[in-house]
Design a protein around this nucleic acid. Structure first.
Lengths: 241, 241
DNA sequence: CTCCACACGTGAATC
DNA sequence: TGATTCACGTGTGGA
């Protein structure tokens, strides 16, 4: 049945060395091998040793030594995997009483869910980034009604929206849709603009360029700069818009 | 060394049954046991059978049968776990050549990352939910300047912001900060309001109740309802605010 | 008793 | 070659 026994106690320090080599996400709890820390197969009767142990204990031949090292290494590998499994189990709610396969199934679900949420949000370009960005693109260039998608990402400030509104008025465009999110002092505003008066026959590209230029100036404008006009403030920043 | 051999071919249908019982995220690729589909230990010399097979093949005693069933079950368990592992490997970039422990490490990293992003966003209550919500809470009740945090989550519509602005004006509060995000036709707006004129000595709680009432009406107001006033439209919805 | 999930030691393969 | 990874069959303890 068993081809080899070896003295388990002689490798304790090797075991702990193996634990110390594990990456940072380890934890002492490595699925606690069955009942005691030692395999019950090897030590079925307390501390008494199997008859064939004496020979191995005194001096083991090459084959026995190789097998011993091999089974040690395999034990370390199992512990490495089970430690990760335990870490995952701690991250998944209500997974304490699950078997390994079910746990991994939950992990798959979780990752899929979170990934889907992340792309849903990322698709809308809604998270403010750390760098200032101005993106202007138009849709339906050949249609009678033309829309321009203008996105600005910059530091948040109280009168940013007032500046934007003033800019749009000056450019004679109106926002038919506005998505905004501020996060950690940064803000990203995405507007869908269309021309205010249909009679004007301004070139689309030059209008886009104008928008881009004005938005870029707003994005990089400094709060301490006293140059900005505050004409709109009395009317709009009463309500901070 | 080995305690039992059994005829591998006799369990093929049980194998495929085990595969069919797996959940929906399975795939034919179950880590492709080493080289061939059969363990090379059992079939070391092509199709020749181990000498002890004949007895088992004719009729197996209870112990041999139990062992056979047990090892089959264990094989199914391994396949179940490995199938999930393969699914995870497909979800993690550049994990084709990783061993199981490293793969699980990457999964842990991935889940941590995605979770952190999710709470970063969720902390700001920025994702619109599917149910209408109006939350009104005040901070610093004992300070001279009082702020009210008002949150509204409802279906998006073009003149929602105009309605909100009108409501704030009617309540004589102004928004000192506004976070907004629209996602899939739903919108969540979070405002920090403060009282417009410092001379008014309105009771804070009644003001909060008023805000809550007005916001709730706006959140539940129907677009087809002709009751809403459009007084602000000419002034503000020129720019769609 | 059976069933199930786990840890174990081992043979083989890969590097 | 030694080190490491994997699948396998088995022993065992808990429902």
């Amino acid at each position: 049945m068993f081809s080899c026994f070896y003295k388990e106690e002689s490798m304790k320090q090797v075991e702990s060395f193996g634990m110390m080599m594990m990456p940072q996400d380890d934890d002492g709890f490595t699925t606690t091998s069955t009942t005691s820390g030692l395999p019950s197969l090897v030590h079925p009767h307390g501390s008494s040793l199997h008859p064939c142990f004496e020979e191995v204990y005194e001096e083991e031949d090459g084959t026995a030594s190789a097998l011993r090292i091999h089974s040690q290494a395999e034990k370390r590998r199992r512990e490495r995997i089970n430690a990760r499994l335990s870490t995952l189990r701690r991250m998944i709610p209500d997974s304490n009483k699950m078997d390994k396969a079910s746990l991994l199934g939950k992990v798959i679900e979780q990752v899929k869910d979170l990934k889907r949420k992340a792309v849903d949000i990322g698709k809308l370009q809604t998270i403010p980034s750390e760098t200032n960005e101005v993106i202007v693109e138009s849709k339906g260039d050949d249609k009678p009604i033309m829309y321009i998608k203008a996105s600005i990402c910059c530091d948040d400030r109280p009168d940013l929206l007032a500046d934007l509104i003033q800019a749009f008025q000056g450019l004679r465009v109106r926002a038919v849709k506005a998505d905004m999110i501020s996060l950690g002092g940064r803000v990203r505003n995405v507007f869908v603009l269309c021309k205010k008066d249909s009679q004007g026959n301004v070139c689309m590209n030059s209008l886009k360029d104008s928008i881009k230029e004005v938005l870029a100036r707003i994005a990089s404008s400094d709060v301490v700069s006293g140059k900005r006009q505050r004409l709109m403030q009395s009317q709009y920043t009463n309500i901070s818009f």
